[in-house]
């Protein structure tokens, strides 16, 4: 089955991952995505009835530890990489709307 991923869908998924995208890029990616997804559809050939999805690969169990305060990075050190900071906080524009 051939599946086309149109530019509208490309723009939608770009917004889902918070990625700005131009019209030209959306067009280019649309063609590429269609051929990639088309190839991946070969998984439909595999019978997976009664096959559980893999959930972990190291046969890991939950690891618990005592909830004890440990030394951590200082606020000053942490903020070294922040593009903008003010009074010990990371500064960003408005996050919540007016409503």
């Amino acid at each position: 089955m051939t599946q086309t991923i149109d530019t509208k869908t490309v723009k939608h998924v770009a917004f889902l991952v918070r990625l700005g995208i131009s019209k030209e890029e959306a067009q280019k990616f649309s063609g590429q995505f269609s051929s990639i997804i088309d190839y991946f559809n070969m998984l439909n050939e595999v019978d997976t009835d009664n096959v559980p999805p893999a959930s972990d690969i190291a046969n890991a169990e939950n690891v618990l530890r005592e909830d004890v305060v440990q030394p951590s990075m200082s606020r000053e050190e942490f903020l070294k990489n922040a593009p903008k900071s003010e009074r010990g906080y990371v500064k960003v524009p408005t996050v919540l709307g007016d409503e």
């Binding site: 991952v17 918070r18 990625l19 700005g20 995505f33 524009p93």
Partner: peptide, 23 residues
């Protein structure tokens, strides 16, 4: 900020893969 930073900061292959992931 997210939209602009990620548009400018990521190359095409990264863009492709994270969009296909969301898909």
């Amino acid at each position: 900020i997210y939209l602009k930073t990620r548009h400018e900061g990521f190359g095409d292959e990264v863009k492709r893969r994270i969009m296909l992931g969301a898909y």
